[in-house]
Amino acid sequence: MSTSTPPRLPQGQPVDELAELLWSAVSATDEYAATKVVLGALDNGASPETVLLDVIARVQGKVGEEWAAARISVAQEHAATAINERAAAVVSVHPAARTTVTRGRITVACVEGEWHGLPARLLAEVLKLRGWQVDYLGAQVPTPHLIAHLHRTRADAVALSSSIATRLPAAHAAVTACQAIGVPVLVGGAAFGPGGRYAKLLGADAWAPDARAAADHLAQGRLPRPESDHQQFDDLPHLADQEYTLVARNGASLVRSVFTALEDAFPAMRSYSEFQRERTAEDLAHIVDFLATALYLDDEDLFVRFITWTAQILEARGVPARGLPPALDLLARELKDFPRAARILQAGTRTLTTAPFTAAGNTA
């Protein structure tokens, strides 16, 4: 157990206390109170970077934890995130955050299909505080538009953010496209796996676990310009078997087939309401998406982590996770001629059947 003293603001207020004040405002969906907390901290001498990363980012992490534990709804999670985004904007325009550009130019963006923009926004604000000229493009940036922007601005580097692993094929395309025009890429976000394992696999020039680490890395020196002759699939020879392509292209058909057969394989589904049936179809679509991503990376651990998380989320919401193994079995039957897909699905089934889940959402 740690006995260290929590960090304090200049006037002696612990950062933990400030984060709790912001959480109280955010959880009550009180935007006025939230911005008042942030402005008060800045007015009293707190550094903008501390407020962004040790207060706002910490509270946003708690928002995610509360949603996963089913203690707040999707609507509440969206409202809380919007308030945290507003709080970050308040920091950016406060006099304490005014800095002079002393470094180069960086573009910060989310990969195509990634709508979780707050982590990228926090990084953009921190980089501004560190003296960079920053172009923040926001969430869900199509790669052609990103490349057009880079041609126009001649940025020294790109920082790409992605929170959801199913966006990794798009991230790979973006990384390769940026490098093809000579712009190095730093990536970050939960999508890139534990320790950033997928960042290296997909050829990124650098990876950072969070905004502070990313800013520190860039402060060590500019990323070297990449060679422009790198081919996107050189390091992913397994894609030659076309399993990823076929699963990705036929995702909707796979979901329909499994959904139709699941009612017989899992009789409890027959009593589902229309809402529950819609959610089941959504869950199946996510399973197929993550299977496709695991095939893209040839990494069964990615799928195992996802299916474990899904079981925890279902149990936390009072939905038995025992419906997952039959769904994986049906999907495996549909893909019986796909050896890598079969291996990945078998790994997921083993995890579900050997690590039962409690109603609290934890493995027993």
Results as ranks from 00 to 15, higher is better:
346 Q>H: 11
181 I>K: 00
208 A>V: 05
305 R>V: 08
364 A>I: 11
51 V>D: 01
335 L>I: 00
290 F>Q: 03
134 V>S: 02
64 G>K: 00
63 V>L: 04
310 T>M: 15
201 L>E: 07
1 M>A: 14
254 L>N: 00
62 K>I: 08
149 H>Y: 07
177 A>D: 11
6 P>Y: 06
309 W>N: 11
154 R>Q: 14
227 E>M: 12
160 L>K: 02
341 A>N: 02
34 A>N: 09
328 L>S: 00
49 E>I: 12
355 A>F: 15
2 S>V: 10
359 A>H: 12
241 D>C: 10
228 S>Y: 08
308 T>F: 06
287 I>R: 01
103 R>H: 14
16 D>P: 01
49 E>A: 15
225 R>A: 13
62 K>P: 00
41 A>F: 02
295 L>P: 03
69 A>R: 13
121 R>S: 11
25 A>V: 05
303 F>K: 02
166 T>K: 06
185 V>Y: 00
25 A>S: 15
38 V>L: 11
251 G>C: 03
75 A>F: 05
223 L>Y: 08
233 F>H: 12
340 R>S: 09
217 H>C: 07
254 L>A: 00
201 L>N: 05
103 R>T: 08
324 L>P: 01
199 A>C: 06
149 H>L: 07
42 L>Y: 05
231 Q>V: 11
182 G>F: 03
186 L>A: 04
218 L>S: 08
226 P>I: 06
44 N>A: 15
78 H>N: 04
336 K>W: 11
261 A>D: 10
201 L>Y: 05
253 S>A: 15
37 V>Y: 07
106 I>P: 01
322 R>F: 03
28 A>P: 05
37 V>H: 09
285 A>R: 14
358 T>S: 15
341 A>Q: 04
150 L>Y: 04
14 P>T: 13
105 R>L: 12
92 S>G: 09
2 S>N: 14
347 A>E: 04
323 G>K: 00
139 A>G: 08
168 L>V: 03
117 G>V: 03
139 A>S: 14
88 A>F: 04
81 T>M: 07
35 T>G: 11
189 G>Q: 04
72 I>L: 11
165 A>R: 02
250 N>T: 09
263 E>Q: 12
150 L>W: 03
154 R>F: 07
273 S>Y: 07
334 E>Y: 07
119 P>K: 05
159 A>W: 01
279 R>N: 12
70 A>R: 06
248 A>M: 10
104 G>A: 13
246 L>N: 06
227 E>S: 13
104 G>K: 07
327 A>Q: 02
34 A>S: 14
145 H>Y: 13
297 L>E: 05
311 A>G: 14
176 T>N: 13
81 T>K: 07
311 A>Q: 00
127 L>H: 00
62 K>G: 06
151 H>M: 09
154 R>G: 09
253 S>P: 01
243 E>A: 03
333 R>T: 09
59 V>E: 01
